[in-house]
Design a protein around this nucleic acid. Structure first.
Lengths: 191, 191
DNA sequence: GCCCAACGACTGCTTGAGCAACTATAACTG
DNA sequence: CAGTTATAGTTGCTCAAGCAGTCGTTGGGC
């Protein structure tokens, strides 16, 4: 690993310099760097494509999760649990998307505290316009970069890491969604 | 391209529901989901640990990149190029960190437009306090989850994806930093 | 049935980040 | 050397997101 000559830099120069400097060659750092950069790179590509369709990453994730749910709807809280957002975050995204005609709120008949966010026809249409290109992007920049075994190995490793590290309580609704699609930039839910 | 059954999809249940629903089983979606969730999970873990030492992910990335650079310093622009931040973003982080005593600005002797951000003694100390735990977190939640070959395979795959997708122009200073450490949540620089 | 704790959604406030505009220097061009 | 253009950094403005607090609703204990 490690063509890490990014810092062929270690030098001697300053007080603590040496002390800390060499640590950066640690393969663990390299590993994290790779993962994070791959993520950043893909995010950037995806965002660009989504933006062409007038969606932010968060909005895309929201509409995706709603669309894949029965009735194209989800209670606000459940939506929050499935996304990288807090409940107040969800309130606001849904506000914006409702304003833009992609979503509507619908009262929950059983529980008057709850309300559903529902994808509108316009919203579904937007999603259908967006998805093909999105899948193409994934293929182009991610899955298509590797032959099948390599991809399988990669996914296998990722799955293990994900299972270990994923903030299992993606806030509330536990692990209701293993393997779920995450289109955001993955900001850690709450600081 | 195309096992794109994204649209051959029709089914019947709900208006559009079916139509879109099955698309979400697409392995490409799954793949992205894994990568993004692994990233989100690790970010969350790391953030928690960094916070114990009073650093945000961005601050940690900044101080790390400075510390690994010759003289523990970098020009503002170069720092921006190496991080997930815009130049104005850098101005502000450095403001905060300077206020907190972790960094100082120093005028550049050659070019009076430029200035360096330099890590202070306090800053180095803070970093030294933080790093061991950070490495431990990486091991605990990431590298330690896999046996050596699996890890190698994972990293290999990530490297290929990274090389393909990474916004090569990490803004300005091109690809000055392959394999660099990225501790942020990897928000796409400028969408 | 009444009370109180828990829950769901929303709102005020604060923070962090980007873009665009601006200032100051530096580098070209003739 | 004067004038133009490019670069480095900062600042004003906007916007998205989280936290904490609020209000209405629900459900459990008694």
């Amino acid at each position: 690993m490690s063509n890490y000559n990014c810092n062929n830099i270690p030098r001697v120069k300053h007080w603590y310099a040496e002390r800390v400097t060499n640590v950066f060659d640690d393969p663990r750092i390299t590993a994290v760097g790779l993962l994070f950069e791959a993520h950043a790179g893909l995010s950037a590509r995806f965002n660009a494509q989504l933006e062409e369709h007038g969606l932010s990453a968060v909005e895309f994730e929201v509409i995706t999760r709603l669309a894949r749910s029965p009735g194209n709807q989800l209670r606000m809280t459940d939506l929050a649990a499935q996304t990288s957002l807090s409940t107040s975050g969800v309130t606001r995204v849904v506000d914006r998307m409702e304003r833009d005609g992609l979503l509507t709120r619908r009262a929950c008949p059983n529980d008057r505290r709850s309300s559903y966010a529902v994808v509108t026809g316009t919203g579904m249409q937007r999603l259908n316009e967006t998805l093909p290109g999105h899948l193409q992007m994934i293929e182009q920049w991610f899955t298509g970069q590797l032959d099948p075994e390599a991809l399988a190995a990669l996914l296998d490793g990722l799955r293990r890491v994900r299972d270990a590290a994923h903030p299992c309580a993606t806030a509330g609704s536990d692990d209701a969604s293993p393997e779920q699609f995450a289109a955001t930039d993955g900001a850690p839910r709450r600081h």
